[in-house]
């Protein structure tokens, strides 16, 4: 076994594990971290495939930018596990598994049944341009210049589109200090909301405060943590007694 096989089997296995973890995880944040893990391992495979430029780009663009964007959006949307695992279409999971298995089986079988010639390697192609980066640069800014220009237009359009889509128009006039004060006075909470319960064992804001009767106060949590399955159980009386 040479070095490349070791890298392939280790990183390839990790990439598949990461992908499976993404599909299986209940919480979207865990899924995002699993995908980031899979993508780092795919980047390692690019390095093994004599493509160090793409490996670096993969880490910077995918794990650095795209997955972190996913995490930002998860923070906006709320990390509550809104993904119900109930089937809305009867038998969908079974049919999807069957379809995926057949699909994967057909592709894998057809690839495995083709004859493989020994890999040509990129050394000769790189040498024709005087180096790997020089070769990529020549192709991007020479042979594929029009595709490159079209992509720059696409990126600008996408950035504009995202700004237009995510723009939040203010429909109601801003509340004055007077209105805010009156709202607060006539609401049920004249005082500030209770602070999260921070104990010696747990120092995070997802720990609810304890009320005098031993129950937990949901109002002590930030909105993002109020969903089902998000509240930390570590502050309940039963847990504390252990």
């Amino acid at each position: 076994m040479n070095g490349e096989s070791v890298v392939f089997w280790v990183s390839g296995t990790f990439a598949v594990v990461g992908a499976l973890g993404m599909v299986v995880s209940k919480k979207a944040v865990h899924s995002a971290l699993w995908v980031a893990f899979a993508m780092v391992n795919i980047a390692v495979l690019y390095f093994a495939l004599e493509a160090p430029f793409l490996g670096t780009t993969q880490i910077i663009v995918y794990t650095g930018a795209v997955m972190m964007l996913f995490l930002f959006v998860l923070m906006i949307v709320g990390v509550d596990s809104s993904d119900s695992l109930l089937e809305t279409i009867k038998g969908q999971r079974l049919l999807a598994s069957l379809f995926a298995l057949t699909f994967g089986g057909v592709i894998v079988a057809s690839i495995a049944s083709t004859l493989s010639s020994p890999s040509a390697g990129l050394a000769i192609a790189n040498a024709g341009y005087g180096g790997h980066l020089q070769a990529i640069g020549f192709l991007v800014f020479g042979t594929y210049l029009f595709a490159f220009e079209a992509l720059s237009a696409l990126l600008i359009t996408a950035a504009l589109g995202a700004m237009v889509l995510a723009h939040n128009e203010r429909w109601t006039p801003r509340k004055t200090q007077d209105q805010l004060q009156k709202e607060r006075t006539f609401s049920n909470h004249v005082t500030p909301l209770p602070a999260p319960g921070v104990l010696a064992r747990n120092n995070s804001v997802d720990t609810p405060a304890l009320l005098p009767d031993g129950t937990t106060s949901i109002e002590s949590l930030p909105n993002a943590f109020r969903g089902e399955g998000q509240v930390s159980k570590s502050n309940s009386i039963e847990e504390a007694g252990k």
Partner: peptide, 14 residues
Amino acid sequence: RNTGTLDGLVIAFF
């Protein structure tokens, strides 16, 4: 890499 050409890398980049 199998074919020894660089176009696939550029397409992947795009």
